[in-house]
Design a protein around this nucleic acid. Structure first.
Length: 558
RNA sequence: GCGCCCGUAGCUCAGUGGAUAGAGCACUGGCCUCCGGAGCCAGGAGCGUAGGUUCGAUUCCUAUCGGGCGUACCA
């Protein structure tokens, strides 16, 4: 349990005791305690912590909130609580002012824990799976995939740190219509590459990368596939090209700092019979019916979905939805307590029926969470960078990494709430200046390393230093922010909101710069210098740990 | 038509039902004989609109306007 949690828990406990005591003395009556919170007030003058308990009890106790607050204050036990003073304010808030010495405990802790500082057991080992990107392996990764990659990977890191047992997974759509189409496109390029004048399929993949892929195949095997019939030829081409594409995707993601635990093949679901099995299972539950030659799932019976969906087409081929049902069933069969998918907003129509299908199979649909992310727009020179699906021309993830660097790209993608459209300013991301938030944070870290190095010796052991010399408001605020890290991580993980950590990193860097400008670290006063060095070191550790969560480097110099 | 997401400062965005709604950019003026000036300090303006629930609403509900997306035997 983190220090902040301990403090909050202690205050909470004492509030309940105070209320029980007052009740015993007949000064207040209530049957149930409200679900109150202990929060950090926005304004510093409102204390270190505050609670709304009195305002929530007015009905139950039939008293006005300030009277209730007064009772709590009168009966509050200060002993061993760090609480120094209690004030009642506004409509009935109870503000707690702490002896700031409680903060000093955090510094030795940070020094001792090092790179694991910030971790907690909030998730209690719950098994959670995060599936993200899962891009079509027929092309290169685009900005939507990039956002999903940054988001998913940071989220997985967060969950891991917060005490969940995390598996990162990529679902490979290696079968179905788009693979058919891929085959046709490859075949056309192959024949064209060998000098034949064949038309390119209208709905084919126009990207240049496919031409390159086919050229490599021609370099290897020449016209050997001309002799095959079209089906066998496409099969061969698809096999080779798919392999190449998937490897390229792996490499690009790897250079983006993203490594998966599992690469799951859609095709394997067809081959293992898991799709047939799940359809059979639904049939047994009378949730499948036949109409116009196709098999329909009664999705309208579940959740908010208002119509039924086809799972097997009239031509006997299962739909993507059928495969996805089997896939998600498989996820739960593998024992995940919590399954998280990150999808583009254009897939939102798929969410309700997906949850419905899980419910139909007896899984709690609430254990499936789908994070929808809005689109990404690229800007260069103040102009929107147009993407063209028809010509297959778009900026790829590897080009983006090439242009702005991994750190800026990851920071920019994860800095926003997935719900909002992301305007990605390429010029800003490239700037090595204060305008660029990622540099601002990294600069703080480099500065910290520089100070620590300037002493020429190792930073002293925090237990042997008088930390109570750290009394300046800038010092105390900085320590306070560091103390918050474990809770910040736990909360961001639970809410599935990694963008909070980008904000935290920025706030922490900002507090450090403020401290740096008002407190000289390398001073002649040996005792004070040592205490400040401990603080600087702890800040560096916290900053680095957060940047690592976001997949951004914490440079020692820049 | 119906469904989902978003409307907060000039721009890009934060804000678990709480107290005086916050950052960055842009604009203006200050700050190094001193640890990294890629830094610090100071300055203005805003919750799309109208109702409702509540002690209290940017947050929840309803309606409405504006933008995006979806509404396939595509994925």
């Amino acid at each position: 349990m983190s220090l902040v949690e301990q403090i909050k828990g202690g205050i909470s406990q004492r509030i309940i005791e105070a209320l029980e005591k007052a009740k015993g003395e007949g000064k207040i009556s209530f049957a149930n305690l409200p679900n109150f919170i202990i929060e950090v007030p926005r304004e510093k003058i409102h204390g270190d912590f505050a609670t709304n308990v009195a305002m929530l009890m007015t009905k139950e106790a039939k008293m006005n909130p300030r009277q209730i607050a007064q009772l709590i204050a009168d009966n509050f036990s200060f002993k061993d609580s760090w609480v120094e003073k209690i004030e009642i304010a506004g409509p009935g808030f109870i503000n707690f002012y702490l002896d700031h010495k409680w903060l000093y405990q955090v510094l030795p802790l940070v020094q001792k824990e090092g790179e694991v500082y910030g971790a907690s057991n909030a998730g209690q080992g719950l098994k959670v799976q995060v599936e993200f990107v899962s891009a079509n392996p027929t092309g290169l990764l685009h900005m939507g995939n990039a956002r999903g990659a940054a988001l998913g990977d940071s989220l997985a890191n967060l969950l891991d740190r917060a005490g969940y047992q995390v598996t990162k997974e990529f679902y490979i759509n290696d079968t179905g219509n788009q693979i058919e189409n891929f085959g046709k496109s490859l075949e056309a390029r192959y024949l064209q590459g060998l000098g034949q004048n064949v038309p390119f399929p209208e709905e084919g993949y126009h990207g240049e990368d496919i031409i390159d892929t086919v050229q490599r195949i021609i370099d290897n095997v020449g016209d050997a596939y001309l002799a095959l019939d079209s089906e066998a030829r496409k099969e061969k081409l698809v096999e080779i090209a798919l392999n190449e594409k998937i490897n390229a995707i792996k490499e690009t993601l790897s250079s983006f700092g993203v490594e998966y635990d599992v690469w799951f093949s859609e095709k394997s679901l067809h081959e293992s019979g898991k799709i047939d099995d799940v359809i059979k299972l639904l049939k047994e539950k009378d949730l499948i019916y036949e109409q116009e030659g196709a098999l329909w799932f009664r999705s309208s019976k579940f959740g908010s979905e208002d119509k039924d969906e086809v799972v097997v087409r009239a031509n006997g081929v299962p739909t993507y939805f059928a495969a996805d049902i089997a896939y998600h069933k498989d996820k739960f069969d593998r024992g995940f307590d919590w399954v998280i998918n990150i999808w583009g907003a254009d897939h939102h129509g798929h969410v309700a029926r997906m949850k419905g299908s899980m419910e139909a199979l007896g899984n709690d649909p609430d254990n499936l969470t789908v994070i929808l992310m809005q689109l990404v727009r690229l800007f260069r020179g103040g102009e929107i960078v147009r993407m063209s699906k028809r010509t297959g021309k778009y900026i790829t993830l590897s080009e983006l990494i090439e242009e702005v660097g991994k750190d800026a790209a990851r920071y920019f993608f994860v800095m926003r709430n997935p719900d909002s459209h992301l305007d990605f300013d390429l010029d800003l991301a490239k700037q090595e200046s204060a305008n660029n938030p990622v540099y601002y944070v990294q600069y703080a870290h480099a500065r910290i390393c520089s100070i620590l190095k300037a002493t020429g010796v190792a930073t002293p052991d925090a237990d042997k230093i008088d930390l109570t010399l750290l009394n300046e408001p800038e010092e105390l605020e900085l320590i306070r922010k560091i103390a918050d890290l474990p809770d910040e991580i736990a909360q961001a993980a639970k809410a599935l909101e990694p963008h909070r950590m980008a904000r935290y990193a920025h706030d922490l860097a900002s507090l450090f710069h403020t401290f740096y400008n008002s407190c000289r670290v390398l001073t002649d006063e040996e005792e004070l210098k040592n205490a400040r060095l401990i603080l600087v070191q702890a800040t560096g550790i916290a900053l680095k740990n957060v940047l690592n969560l976001l997949g951004v480097n914490a440079p020692e110099r820049m």
